[in-house]
């Protein structure tokens, strides 16, 4: 941990004004940032503590959706009766992540911005383009069991570790932010993250000082079945090898609507319209499920020790679709 200054933001306006300065990071729960700072993977010069800002409520909107304050702890969000009833996939995803202690501390906004768990990103003795741009990627030819098979580049194959964000992606959540100049914007969660390309160190479209203040969930899909299925190396406290978040409605035997997002496969919570197109409007069947898996994995590329994720994702998706459609 490098020496840093610490200040507590009195308001969101003050936070964003401070946050734009170079070397500044916001801190809320600190469940990821502090670990990274201790190991000098993150070396901010200044921390602006936003944890006491009044962004910790879950409110119902007039349109029937839910607005989640960015500082709502993961455990509170998972236990909220409205979330359990209307957005079950989100509650399940949250409870599949981390441990009880971590969920008590971790914030909703911070969860979206978790950094990868790539072994080499975590080790400052090793080259890593995400941590030290231009130094090279140790994972591509190294041990990459937990890393990505979709959306990778020749600079980075990191995965995004969040479970919650996968569910949010399936729910079409919108991220509400406040920028350094005070302007607010609303970003569809699918637009929040960036693929690594040549700049894996840039993970989101957020600008310096831009603060996530809330996450909006749209009106819940009526009559939908929800599922969050996480495949992992131990029964708890392990990151997803593959995860599937699904929200599906049926019209008789036909899939009326489907929202499917994936964790453990890509550098962001993954969603591909072609996967949903393969099943929507069609009778639920193993044939269309196989087509969905084909669509998901058409461009999948393994790097050796993570090759198994491709067949694993295929099987997990098919089993998930069976469960979601009742086939």
């Amino acid at each position: 941990m490098k020496l840093f200054t610490y200040e507590r933001a009195a308001s969101a306006d003050a936070a964003v004004a401070e946050g734009a300065a170079p070397g500044t990071k916001f801190i809320a729960g600190g469940t990821n940032l502090l670990d990274l700072m201790k190991l000098q993977i993150e070396t901010p010069e200044r921390l602006v503590d936003i944890s006491r800002l009044p962004l910790n409520t879950i409110d119902e909107r007039e349109d029937g959706g839910l607005t989640i304050g960015a500082l709502v702890p993961n455990s509170d969000l998972a236990a909220d009766p409205r979330v359990i009833e209307r957005y079950e996939v989100l509650s399940r995803a949250l409870l599949a992540g981390a441990s009880g202690q971590l969920r008590n501390k971790a914030s909703t906004g911070g969860n979206l911005l978790q950094r990868t768990r790539c072994y080499y990103f975590y080790d400052t003795a090793m080259p890593c383009n995400k941590r030290a741009p231009g130094s090279g990627c140790s994972a591509i030819d190294g041990y990459n069991r937990i890393l990505a098979v979709l959306g990778t580049s020749d600079k980075c194959i990191a995965t995004h570790p969040s479970d919650m964000a996968v569910a949010m992606r399936a729910l079409d959540a919108t991220v509400v932010t406040q920028k350094a100049d005070g302007d607010r914007r609303r970003i569809a969660i699918g637009d929040l993250y960036r693929l690594p390309g040549d700049t894996p160190e840039v993970e989101t479209v957020l600008e310096p000082g831009e603060l996530i203040t809330a996450i909006e969930l749209p009106v819940p899909v009526e009559g939908a079945r929800h599922l969050y299925r996480k495949v992992r190396d131990r029964a708890s406290y392990a990151f997803a090898l593959v995860s599937v978040a699904g929200v599906v409605t049926m019209d008789g035997d036909t899939v009326a609507s489907a929202a499917l997002a994936f964790g453990g496969l890509g550098p962001m919570p993954w969603r591909d319209p072609a996967v949903e197109a393969a099943i929507v409007g069609k009778p639920a069947s193993d044939a269309s499920f196989a087509a969905a898996a084909d669509a998901l994995l058409a461009n999948a590329k393994g790097f050796g020790s993570n090759d198994f994720k491709i067949p694993l994702a295929r099987r997990t998706l098919i089993a998930s679709l069976r469960e979601l459609t009742g086939v």
């Binding site: 072994y119 080499y120 975590y122 003795a125 041990y143 131990r234």
Partner: peptide
Amino acid sequence: TEDLIHDPRNGKLVNRDLAEYHVPVNAD
């Protein structure tokens, strides 16, 4: 679960924390 992995290219221990060296947790 337990598997201590060294990178054969340089002898570096790959998984050197309790998040990635998996000892069984209660649920296991």
